[in-house]
Write a protein that binds this DNA or RNA. Structure first.
Lengths: 250, 250
DNA sequence: TCAGAAATCAATCATTTTCTTTCAAAAACA
DNA sequence: TGTTTTTGAAAGAAAATGATTGATTTCTGA
């Protein structure tokens, strides 16, 4: 049985029942348990279902999603690995700040759920955070339509109310002289303020951000640690990317 | 039986009966007592129910809230007409407060988009507001998972930053003596504060809310105008409903 | 009101089930 | 053919489960 056939079968079954056991799928498809597990992992990454211990469950909200492109771009995969690395830095008891933005959003899946407090200005993060029952605070202020981020004077004041163990930021440019930059002046101010309220600041950035400079400066390089995918040269001239953390200190 | 299956079963049972005994659940799910206890602990942490000696009890407020899904189409239609009436009160240049809740959400479609400013604590309203390019401000604070509303101490302070021409609120109970009530004390405080910051306050409520009393008092009847569907008797003993506005003054 | 009985509880541990990781064989592909 | 992708099997790790223990709460009857 071909891979896409199995996937179709699984998706069809999960449209009928809210939960399917792995053993059911093994019997139905006559594939091995390993294969089914791999299928479920892929389908979960594509946001088609949710894995649960013993099987898979239907996603709430996405009852029928007719035209959904398989997410397999290399870039997304890199983002996810960077995000996962960052999420692993969060420990029980931490209070953390999550910046708006798609890279940071990928972190949410990997965050521990117990005994952490999240503060965010990213409206797009809220469904996932609440879904995972993570204690979440939103800062107040103007809701910027384009990026779904909370910004503005009110946001700065609202941020002042909190202190963080760790703060995770997205940026658009990383440059030795110009430091971290982002196109929107107001967003830069929020990021700046969040950094100043955190004990440790992390910037998440894939390799495309390096040597870029955009309009508004956030901070100098040494003011945050960068979590990125460093490209490493391997034998035979092949490159593979490896998520590692690079810390620039003053 | 998979863990989430049991959880669903438990939640379903507790929607029917306000209290379930552990032994019932053991018999029903054919799991051990230990497992059921663990399930209840988890579900309590997720704020889905409350453990009591011998079993589990339904949460207050969860009572008339089967997850916002089951609304009779008639009821929804009434809500929409009430919401439309309310939205027509908003004029260009107004700054308005929109409370969290499904009735208020229906207003968004009918709001004018030009030259109005919206402040809200309802996270579920944001996609629609931003979609319509309405200038939107969110108040900061704790994001309550069950209702997707911003509440808490921070929210009150955040609200203080604003003043409104009109404020639109949802309530759960309307009663001559007890005034407007809602199940959550914290949400009541937010509604109260929003009212105090507005020149005109409106409560949106369909006829099912009348003579109801829930836990936390928001205000006396005369402090807001009620927008509701009054039932009017027509010829031949037929009833039709007509959306009208009823103002109670002191 | 009190003491004893019964029921319920949290905590712990051994067992079972499920998961992830790894590796090599098979299949698909160029 | 050589290379990549998919697959299945196996081993060790992690999670879920059920039974047991002793503590706590509730019930019962004087």
């Amino acid at each position: 049985m071909l891979t896409p056939e199995r996937h179709q079968l699984i998706l069809q079954l999960i449209k009928e029942k809210p939960i399917v056991k792995i053993q059911e799928l093994v019997d139905l498809t006559e594939a091995s348990e390993s294969t089914i597990r791999r299928d479920l992992t892929l389908l979960e990454e594509g946001k088609f279902l949710k894995r649960v211990h013993g099987g898979a469950a239907r996603l709430r909200g996405k009852l029928q999603e007719p035209s959904m492109v398989e997410k397999s771009s290399k870039n997304l995969h890199e983002k996810r690995r960077i995000a996962q690395y960052a999420a692993n830095l969060v420990e029980e008891g931490d209070s953390i700040y999550l910046d708006a933005g798609s890279t940071i959003q990928e972190m949410i899946t990997f965050l521990p759920t117990k005994d952490i407090v999240v503060v965010t200005n990213g409206l797009m993060h809220l469904p996932a955070l609440l879904e995972r029952n993570i204690e979440t605070y939103v800062i107040g202020g103007y809701a910027k339509p384009k990026t779904n981020a909370i910004i503005g004077r009110g946001a700065l004041g609202s941020l002042e109310q909190y202190r963080f163990d760790k703060c995770f930021l997205g940026v658009n440019g990383i440059h030795p002289q110009s430091g971290y930059t982002t196109p929107d002046q107001e967003e830069a101010m929020i990021k700046q303020k969040a950094m100043s309220l955190a004990r440790e600041a992390y910037v998440l950035a894939d390799d495309t951000k390096f040597s870029e400079i955009t309009f508004a400066k956030i901070a100098d390089l040494h003011e945050a640690a960068i979590i990125t995918n460093e490209l490493e040269e391997e034998s035979k001239g092949q490159y593979t990317s490896k998520t590692s953390i690079k810390v620039v200190t003053s």
